[in-house]
Computed example of a mutant assay.
Amino acid sequence: MKIPMLDLSEQYSKLREEMIQALDEVMTSSKFILGSNVKQIEEAIANYSNVKHGIGVANGSDALHISLQACGVSEGDEVITTPFTFFATAGAIARCGAKPVFVDIDPTTYNIDPEQIESAITTKTKAILPVHLYGQSADMDPIIGIAKKHGLYIVEDAAQAIGARYRGKMVGEMGNAACFSFFPTKNLGAYGDAGMIVTNDDVIAENCRVLRVHGSKPKYYHHVLGYNSRLDELQAAVLNVKFKHLNTWVDNRRNAASNYTSMIQKEFGELIDTPVEAGGNFHVYHQYTIRVPERDTFQSYLKENGVASMIYYPVPLHLQPVFQELGLKEGDFPESEKAAKEAISLPMFPEIKEEQQKYVIETMKKYFSKN
Rank of each mutant, 00 (worst) to 15 (best):
F32W: 14
V276N: 09
Y134I: 09
V210Q: 14
V315K: 06
F32R: 14
F333Y: 12
I344T: 04
A120D: 08
K217D: 11
K353P: 01
E156H: 11
G215D: 08
V101W: 06
H286A: 12
D232H: 07
G226A: 14
H222P: 05
D77G: 12
L8S: 13
A205W: 06
P142R: 09
D296P: 07
E42A: 05
I361V: 12
R16T: 02
L328P: 04
P142E: 09
F182K: 00
Y359W: 08
E173Y: 08
P130M: 01
T363S: 02
I144T: 15
G280H: 12
N281V: 04
Y359D: 03
M364R: 04
D113R: 08
I3G: 00
D62R: 06
L346P: 03
I20L: 13
N259W: 01
V292W: 00
N259G: 04
D201F: 08
L326T: 07
P350E: 02
G195F: 03
P100R: 00
P314I: 14
I66T: 01
S119M: 14
P321R: 13
A98E: 14
V198F: 05
Y285W: 11
L239Y: 07
R165N: 04
P334E: 10
R209C: 12
Q235Y: 06
T261Q: 06
R209V: 08
N281G: 06
I352G: 01
N281S: 09
A237D: 04
T274P: 01
K303S: 13
K353F: 05
A190E: 06
Q235W: 00
V38P: 00
V284N: 05
G192V: 12
K149Y: 12
Y221N: 15
K217E: 15
K39S: 12
F183H: 13
T199C: 10
S67M: 09
S49C: 12
G35Y: 02
H214C: 14
E118N: 14
G56I: 07
